[in-house]
Design a protein around this nucleic acid. Structure first.
Length: 423
RNA sequence: GUGGGUGUGGCUCAGCUGGUUAGAGCACCAGGUUGUGGCCCUGGUGGCCGUGGGUUCAAAUCCCAUCACCCACCCCA
């Protein structure tokens, strides 16, 4: 019989690595609460149209990467490729804006994109992200970026770099776009095939091209930063000043263009040079037009999404040993299987006191059980041997100091509690 | 969708100018230690050498096909 395998681009996160994930999410939640963001838990699938309208049909995500299906009711639904569209949908659907002028939400969960997997790129992957809805001020941009960086530093990722840019708004982007396409048109023949395609779909993305000859052609290309209107220029200046006041290092990357259509003004990206070719740990920016685009009232907004698998990749560079996170207070050994049932009952009593206990379920030899206890990193081993039982005592062994002593059975639970709490 | 690389016990890999029973380390089990873990020693379990076809007296090894995984392009978190 052929065993069934997991779907391409999906992962089983096994222990002990899953403990690293627990730690990661607990750090994220802790920092979110420091900034007073509330969690929103959303469906993982939505009407396909939400993403088409929210993310933009010209993007790769919508045009070729979505897991879309028609359900039995004839609805066209899609596994979410990102979180922002759903948050905005929920914001509108529940009129969150009328309950409070500024709404700050975060989410953690899986996203789905049908791309060719590679390092740092999976078909099901996990993101966390925030959305600040209702705040037009650059203060919101700066807060979001600070929060993002704080999470990275709490985790222990220090090898990352922040890049920012402004891509203008509906006032100024139009003129820029036409000037840029005009510039590119004149050199169209000298651009690579990919860039010729970009020219047609979204000219701003030619700046992402890694092809050297294209970069040479782009040397004198007009830059968005020179086209910013008064409002956008001022907003961008305040973001930069804000970052400086927070002592946050950044670099301006005038070629930074986000792949999603909804961004306006501020865009940012945090990259790591140590996680392979997919080097973006997180990215986001301002999207002042999206809420209205999805049928809500005009609402300014800022948000970002971060790739959790990529953060773990960057984290492993700092040699965090996940297996050392496994800890067990106590292992209950009942050699030769005589007292297995009794052991299980004692284990429950110790657990009642909040102390973790493992019982050997196989009734193995004492040697095997100690070996097992050692593997499990157990601090104490309680041995319920025949000799001891006949004398009404148990043997307690500290696996770190190798000291062991006899304990009268009635006192066992109390003294284990005492011992563990003193460590 | 395009390109490159790799498929040998649970894991990491050696063997691959074709030639007798396919190896190592780690992990696992047992013993050395007649109830006591980690270190050490000894032994053991476990592999249709990704799959299918071809060449040959003979294929893990050569050829073709196919599948899977990895990395990169593209794009993005």
């Amino acid at each position: 019989m052929e065993p069934i395998r997991r779907i391409k681009g999906t992962d089983d996160i096994l222990p002990p690595e899953s403990l690293l994930w627990q730690k990661l999410t607990s750090i994220i939640r802790k920092v979110m609460s420091l900034y007073n963001y509330q969690e929103i838990i959303m469906p993982v699938f939505e009407y396909s149209e939400l993403f088409a309208r929210g993310i933009g049909t010209s993007t790769d995500i919508v045009s070729k990467e979505m897991y879309t299906l028609v359900d039995k009711g004839g609805r066209n639904v899609t596994l979410r490729p990102e979180g922002t569209a759903s948050v905005v949908r929920a914001y509108i659907e529940h009129s969150l804006g009328s309950k409070s002028p500024v709404v700050k939400l975060y989410y953690i969960g899986p996203m789905f994109r049908q791309e060719r997997p590679q390092k740092g790129r999976r078909r099901q992957f996990n993101q966390f992200g925030i959305e600040i809805l209702g705040a037009p001020s650059p203060l919101a941009d700066v807060e979001g970026i600070s929060l993002n960086l704080r999470i990275l530093s709490e985790i222990g990722i220090h090898n990352s770099k922040l890049m920012i840019n402004s891509i203008g708004d509906s006032n100024c982007r139009g003129k820029y776009r036409s000037d840029l396409t005009g510039y590119l048109e004149k050199r169209f023949d000298r651009l690579c095939g990919d860039c010729q395609e970009r020219y047609r779909v979204n000219a701003l993305r030619v700046f992402d091209c890694k092809n050297e000859s294209c970069q040479i052609e782009l040397r004198d290309a007009p830059l968005m930063l020179d086209y910013l209107c008064e409002g956008c220029r001022e907003h961008f200046d305040l973001v930069k000043k804000g970052l400086e006041k927070h002592q946050i290092d950044y670099s301006i990357n005038s070629r930074l263009v986000r792949g999603l259509d909804y961004y306006t003004r501020t865009v940012f990206e945090i990259v790591s040079s140590e996680i392979g070719s997919q080097d973006s740990l997180s990215g986001g920016g301002r999207y002042d037009l999206l809420v209205e685009e999805l049928g809500g009232k005009s609402t300014p907004a800022f948000g970002f999404a971060a790739g959790m698998e990529r953060m773990l990749l960057a984290w492993e560079q700092n040699s965090v040993i996940s297996s050392s996170l496994i800890k067990l207070d106590c292992f209950l050994a009942a050699p030769k299987g005589i007292h297995l049932t009794q052991a299980a009952i004692i284990a429950e009593k110790i657990r009642d006191e909040g102390i973790s206990v493992e019982v050997d379920l196989l009734g193995r030899s004492l040697k095997s059980e100690l070996k097992e206890a050692n593997r499990l990193n157990a601090r104490l081993v309680i041995i319920l041997g025949e000799d001891e039982a006949s004398r009404g005592v148990c043997l307690v062994r500290d696996m770190v100091s190798s000291v062991q002593w006899e304990e009268p059975s009635p006192r066992l639970v109390n003294s284990v509690v005492e011992y563990i709490s003193k460590i």
